[in-house]
Simulated scan of single mutants.
Amino acid sequence: MKRILVAAASVVLLFLSIGAAAQQARTIKSYTDFGDYRVVYSVFNSDFIQPEIAQQYQLVRAKDRAYVNVSVVKKEGGARGLSAEMSGTATNLIQQSRPLKFKEIREGDAVYYLAPLRFEDEETLTFNVEVTLPNGKSEKISFRRKLDRG
Rank of each mutant, 00 (worst) to 15 (best):
A110Y: 06
T91H: 06
V111P: 00
D121H: 11
E76R: 05
F119V: 09
G81K: 02
S87D: 11
G81D: 04
G108T: 04
T91C: 07
E85Y: 11
R98T: 15
L117G: 04
S97Q: 15
L82D: 06
Y112K: 02
F102V: 08
R118W: 07
G88H: 08
A79D: 10
F102W: 06
G81W: 03
L117D: 05
I105H: 01
A90H: 04
K75L: 12
V73I: 14
A90Y: 07
L93W: 09
A115C: 05
E104W: 04
S97R: 13
S97V: 08
E76I: 11
K103S: 08
L82H: 08
L114K: 03
F119R: 01
I94S: 09
E107K: 09
S71L: 11
A115G: 05
Y112Q: 00
Q96W: 13
T89K: 11
E85P: 03
V73D: 00
Y112E: 02
G108C: 03
E122N: 13
D121L: 05
I105S: 00
R118P: 03
T89G: 00
T89I: 13
V111G: 00
V72E: 03
T89A: 12
K75D: 05
E122R: 15
R118K: 14
G88M: 14
T89P: 04
L114E: 01
E104A: 05
Q95T: 13
L82R: 09
A110T: 04
A79W: 13
E122A: 10
E107I: 13
A110D: 15
K101D: 15
P99D: 14
R106E: 08
M86H: 10
G88V: 11
V111A: 02
P99I: 12
F102P: 01
T91Y: 10
V111S: 00
M86S: 04
A84V: 07
A115I: 04
A84D: 06
L100G: 00
G78C: 05
E122M: 15
A90T: 10
K75E: 10
G108H: 01
G78R: 03
G77F: 08
K101H: 12
R106L: 06
F119C: 05
L93C: 00
Y113N: 00
S87R: 14
T91P: 05
R80N: 13
G88D: 06
A115N: 02
K74I: 03
P99S: 12
F102K: 03
Y113M: 05
D121F: 11
Y113L: 01
L114N: 00
R98K: 15
A90N: 08
L117Q: 03
R80S: 09
G77R: 02
F119S: 04
I94F: 11
K101V: 15
V73K: 04
T91M: 09
P116I: 10
D121K: 12
L82Y: 12
S97L: 06
E120L: 10
L100C: 07
S71Q: 12
E107D: 10
Y112I: 03
F102R: 02
